[in-house]
Write a protein that binds this DNA or RNA. Structure first.
Length: 226
DNA sequence: ACATTAAGTGATT
DNA sequence: AATCACTTAATGT
């Protein structure tokens, strides 16, 4: 009984993979490629805050985000972090491709921000697809470009914005990404993402609350507007 | 009721 | 803006 159920579920998900890819990438990728990807891809489901890639991991599979969102951060040897950018539905981390083919260890940490669904593709196929499918080339290059732009935005924020502005931007980015004005984070988690300290973040959040931008609760920050 | 974790605060650098 | 040292508040057992 249990076996037949799980087999059914497995088969369904195999069929669904193509549909999911079609829905997310049907406009950019050739149908033959979508089919091929669906055959090769392994499904990975994540829970909120599940770490998908650790610093130092040797990647062999490249994730494509189907549902949900992933946070990519830098991490130093003390475990201190800095959020770099997010990866949303239909996106991939093109940088991990290079990481795979050059057999380098991952320089970043990837964490699921919500329950997410990923398709994991063996890196070696990605290489051959670069020559085989024009749409794939375009997709990867455009992904590289997006990540690069987001990286620059982060650098701008760090270099040119005060922490209070950066904090507000962070809250708004989170809200946009997760589609909710309620941000379910502790002040400590926010501080980690911004590589600041809890006390400082608490004080700045208090100021934002006084200004009427947000309201504060335990484990929860509510934005008034995006 | 008690322990634990999150958030608030004053003082100091 | 960060850190320390402490208080207060919220929540779990």
């Amino acid at each position: 009984m249990r076996t037949s159920l799980s087999i059914t579920k497995q088969m369904l998900s195999q069929v669904d993979k193509e549909a999911m890819l079609q829905a997310q990438l049907g406009y950019v990728l050739e149908p033959e490629l979508i089919t091929e990807m669906a055959q090769l891809a392994k499904i990975r489901e994540t829970t909120t805050d599940e770490i998908i890639v650790h610093v130092g991991d040797r990647l062999q599979l490249i994730p494509i985000v189907i549902e949900g969102s992933i946070k990519v951060s830098r991490e130093n040897e003390n475990g201190e972090e800095l959020l770099l950018y997010y990866i949303e539905g239909g996106d991939t981390c093109a940088m991990s491709l290079q990481c795979c083919t050059k057999k380098m260890d991952s320089q970043i940490k990837a964490t699921a921000m919500e329950p997410s669904l990923l398709l994991m593709i063996p890196a070696e196929y990605m290489e051959t697809w670069m020559n085989q499918y024009k749409s794939w080339r375009t997709y990867i290059i455009s992904n590289y470009h997006s990540r690069m732009m987001e990286l620059m935005e982060s650098i701008d924020a760090i270099a040119f914005m005060n922490l209070d502005q950066r904090l507000l931007k962070y809250l708004r980015d989170q809200a946009k990404l997760l589609g909710s004005l309620e941000i379910l984070h502790t002040h400590q988690q926010v501080a980690d993402d911004l590589h600041s300290s809890r006390v400082v973040i608490s004080r700045l959040l208090k100021q934002l609350e006084i200004k009427g931008e947000i309201t504060l609760h335990r484990n929860k920050i509510i934005l008034k507007t995006i």
